[in-house]
Design a protein around this nucleic acid. Sequence first.
DNA 1: GCCGTTTTCGGCCCGACTGTTTTCAGTCG
Length: 585
Amino acid sequence: MSEQQNTLAGIFETMANVLELQGESPHRTQAYRRAAESLRALGEPLEQLWREKRLKEIPGVGDILAAKIAEYLQTGTLAAYNRLLDQVPFGLLELLEIPEVGPRRAKLFWDSLGIVSADDLEAAAIAGQLRQVKGVGARMEQRLLENIRAWRRQRTGRLPLGVAWPLLQDIRRELRDVPGVLQAEPIGSLRRMRETVGDVALLVAATDAAAVMAHFCQLPLVEEVLLMGATKTSVRTADGIQVDLRVLSPERWGSGLQYFTGSQAHNLHIRRLAQQQGLTLGEYGFRRDNGSEIICAGEEAVYATLGLPWIPPELREDRGEIEAAQAGRLPRLVERGNLLGDFQCHTDYSNGEHNLEEMVAAARQVGLRYMVVADHTNGTACGKGLTPEVLDDFLADVARVNAWFAKGTPLFREFQVFAGAEVNIQADGTLDWSDEALARLDFVVASVHTDLSLPREQMTRRIITAMQNPHVDLIGHPLNRLLGLRHGVDVDVEAVFRAAAARGVALEINAWPQRLDLNDIYVRRALELGVTLAISSDAHDREGFAVLDFGMAMARRGWAGPQHLLNARSAAEIPRWRQARMQHG
DNA sequence: GCCGTTTTCGGCCCGACTGTTTTCAGTCG
């Protein structure tokens, strides 16, 4: 499970922090950080790599760290980590989370003032003691005081993509209107569409950087300007979100965009390739040994200089995309235009806010050609649910809308509604509706909503049993995680994927920002095992279709092409796919 | 601690920004 990967990554990061506090070599601490990052970006389950004795294939993992990973997987603990934790006060590690407090300052505060927690630091700042420390003046003391307070307000860590993306769009719209601005794009993990991002960062191409910065700082959403330089400005919004803006001259746009998009691991790999050609690569372009430059106006030129095709940002995690690019085997990724249908949305037949016609109009507006209305059945604890008793009304309603499109202008004929339901998978794997009722539907989504804490074996059997029901087309939000709230059910993911592939049942990429389930890592593994996937908005109102972009991001980050997704099939193909599945299963 | 077309030692990405400095250290991404 990815949970262990994250925990272990956190352990390695903490070890790096402790080693740094102890004055260890920065390269040694960097090694721990690099391994931690690799663990988080891992393209397949850590346990699997361990079982197959392939831990050393992880970038930045050698003999020693491989042994530590194995020890942790085997025993659930790490002796070296526990030893390190005993060597520094625990609160000192908390200190490192405060902006502008790094290992050097933390150690300095500890050594000179005995500060071992954020509370200590705040007290010392208020008492005016910090300015006595070497390298700290009155201004830094004041800044740190503000930083401690901001950190207390906002210690949630990473920002969900669903929060960061709309904020980015707002800022981008504002900046595009500034005279002299030619381009404005997200950079960093936001451009790579990670499910969570560290902060919101943008790159702007403009001739007059100062004018852009000034405009940026005056945006209504800016609460505080953290720093402002010639090329970079950082602000904090009222919600405590940090937004970074970098401005670059247009002729170096490509180099800057590539550099700041990352990921760190991708760029390190790219720079090693550059070095092999006697080039160094930075944010302003390539430099040859003789000092001459190669300037890239577009990102394509950066990759082309290294003999590579352009690599889509969603792939830039050093998970094999550079090797694929070298071999000319980059995947063709799904694009927004490939998404013809949506496989789960809700109307006021269950807990949706809008009626069928309103949802159809909204779906058409975002360019869809068909959608599965999959209202909750009454077995889910969602309040109002679809019952077999109102099924007649529901089917008549759907038929009426479809007839209306069939009669309309040629343009209108292009939309179709499939009558579906999101049925509940009960603890024993049976469904809350009878086969007779399910047989009347065009499409059946089955999801787990209750009894989320079953033991692994039982949960696995439960989902696989549900897939054996011939009416089930799609398993909704298969792992049931809620970002930042719930880790997801304990289930043998491999077994579920293999069963889905064998039965021909599709698995959902639920695009709801809190779900993103399956996520990129699991998408990639599912595809390797031959599973068909379907992106769903899970829209509960007219605005809900907008999240399809996030589902598509998970698909692209998982290397999915149109051939892997039900959404890329036409409305006419869906019943045929269904029929083939039933015969096959 | 990792890693290797510079291959078992000696490197390790690189530049911006800030504050407190009289030439630079620490932090950040």
